[in-house]
Design a protein around this nucleic acid. Structure first.
Length: 227
DNA sequence: GCGACAG
DNA sequence: ATCTTGTCGC
């Protein structure tokens, strides 16, 4: 109990300390048409994390896939997921870039970016550590929101985080309807990308299912590796 | 005090 | 995330 509280205090301080380093431009240059993207997911078997990355282009064409096992060192604690999965993803990206001799421009991460109580979710942690553009795509929100999201595919609803220092609350992400009449997914900028661009590029890669095809494929590959 | 809680 | 039966719909 006492020891866990100490760990949470330490991790909370770490998030609060690094959050100001996250850069979310308001207006950004259009994303390079030749950008190389990576979608990542990890499956766990105890403390073994089976990580998979799907490398693809702006047209959604898959260029490479890569899976590898890494060890997790920190347990899952809600709002501190970055510390369990972040280091695994950082190692995976470095290994994949070396193996295929390429440089990834944008990362799609299964978790949140700045749509987080301390604006420092998994996608932000990874983006900052690797100095890459990153986007968080999660299946549940960590921040409450109000308003009504239309049932139509591609509709979205802004999510704001209360800011005690500003009268205006900060836009941190969106509830996004990736499939008609189905529970939304939650999209947020992680690092070096605007919220609007994060949503736009996620829309570009939306297929027939609730989860993006590239993340479904990463999920499938990671599960396959875990068997 | 109570409820909520990425994967 | 993982465990786990039946059920509904395309």
């Amino acid at each position: 109990m006492e020891k866990n509280d100490t760990l949470i205090k330490k991790l909370t301080d770490f998030q609060n300390q690094l959050a100001p380093s996250i850069w979310i431009p308001i207006d950004a240059e259009p994303i390079y048409k030749g950008a190389i993207l990576g979608a990542i997911d990890v499956q766990y078997e105890g403390e073994n994390g089976f990580a998979a990355i799907v490398i693809f282009d702006r047209k959604g064409k898959i260029l490479h896939t890569f899976t590898k096992k890494y060890e997790a060192t920190i347990p899952y604690i809600p709002s501190f997921f970055a510390f369990r999965e972040g280091d695994i993803i950082i190692r995976l990206v470095n290994d994949a870039e070396k193996k295929f001799n390429l440089n990834l421009d944008i990362l799609f991460i299964d978790g949140h970016g700045i749509a987080h109580p301390r604006k420092f979710g998994l996608a932000s942690y990874v983006g900052l550590a690797l100095e890459k553009m990153s986007i968080g795509i999660a299946k549940d929100t960590l921040v409450k929101y109000t308003g009504i999201l239309p049932t139509e595919k591609y509709s979205s609803l802004d999510i704001y985080l209360e800011d005690k220092n500003n009268a205006e609350n900060d836009l941190i992400g969106y509830a996004y309807r990736s499939r008609e009449d189905v529970k939304p997914i939650f999209v947020s900028a992680g690092h070096k990308i605007s919220s609007k661009q994060a949503l736009e590029i996620v829309k570009e890669h939306t297929g027939e299912y609730r989860q993006l095809d590239v993340l479904r494929e990463a999920d499938r590959l990671a599960r396959e590796a875990a068997e």
